[in-house]
Amino acid sequence: MASLWEYANPVKFMRLSGWLMPLSAVLAAALIGAGLIWGLFFTAEDYRMGASVKIIFLHVPSALMAINAWAMMLIASLIWLIRRHHVSALAAKAAAPVGAAMTLIALLTGAIWGQPMWGTWWAWDPRLTSFLILFLFYLGYIALWSAIDDPDTAADLTSVLCLVGSVFAVLSRYAAIFWNQGLHQGASLSVAPGERMDLSYRMPLYLCMIGFGLLFLALVLAGTRTEIRARRARALLTRERARA
């Protein structure tokens, strides 16, 4: 079997992502479409929450990807720091705005859900607070990338920030729990007895979650391809300047 590290070569990565990106985009559209249609129109309404519960099909997958995007950035940063694969650093860079958007979607859908349920758009609940803090971490990370001109320096510094930020993001999560016990319901996919959702809800939710995962993949691949092309343009420009 070929080594996974082969795809650290920009050429091979471009070739692979050239067909993987549209494929995952189409699959993501199909799965999210199917999941949403199933979830919105062919499931029963909750006896307490009515139809508003159905926003769960957007809320939970986006929240899931908001966290997973950071985890992916952490892994990509580690790969960059240890093995110096440029594609890895660029993938981390491309994932940040996607993760920030997912966090924002999770916060917005949460607010829309929370308004009829809790009677407020926003509450300083630990989960909500943690997500807001996560959003700030994304902003800082993106800002650091955009502030540094030299791409390798930027990759190094943002990677360290991602590592340190991960530790403090986890700390913030526990600090937020310590600080306020909160209104938010338990984990939506909890398997604890009495908390588990009905299968008719879980199936479309799983579809949407896989769809969001593929959507994330497609967006990150597209972003990484753009970054690789930008790096190539930059390298060409530097060379031309040096020749002049």
């Binding site: 070569n9 920009p10 694969h85 390798d152 690789i228 190539r232 390298a235």
Partner: peptide, 20 residues
């Protein structure tokens, strides 16, 4: 010498050369 080839050569550890 300024790298002349536009083919993708080595891709690890060199500064930006991977993208030329």
């Amino acid at each position: 010498a300024i790298p002349a080839d536009l083919g993708f050569g080595g891709f690890d550890g060199d500064n930006g050369g991977a993208f030329l």
